[in-house]
Amino acid sequence: MTSMKTINFNDTNPGDKLPELEIPVTVALITGGAIATRDYFPGHHDKDAAQELGSPHVFMNILTTNALVQRFVEKWAGPQARFKDLKIKLGVPNYPGDTMKLMGEVTDKDEVSQTVTVALAGKNSMGTHVSGTVSLTLPV
């Protein structure tokens, strides 16, 4: 369960680390995630099609990566945090059998808008799958 407690803006400081989150990358997560985001591109659910594109297996779609980034940040921030943006850069693919470890830390605070910026990265055995920033407003 996401903690019902939301982190207080005043209790955050640049340098604060988010709890790491390890996500097993499975065929079910990749295909289920693609369909849940209404992305029927064959490379996300059809191994043969993915291999024809030169991939060893189906690969995670961007919208699932976005969702997992949201989950990672929200799990730390709590249900009263409000996303202002979610900006990612895409790296190596997420293939089944791998594990993506998400790490992040607070890098910036804006007192006027009560917004914190979190910089994050999700790494798997091949390198960085996703890196980027999320801005959130937090209650005081």
Binding site: M4, I23, T37, R71, E74
Partner: peptide, 10 residues
């Protein structure tokens, strides 16, 4: 979507 992604925010 929440079920697949593991998002548990109520």
């Amino acid at each position: 979507w929440c079920e697949v992604m593991g998002v548990e925010n109520p």
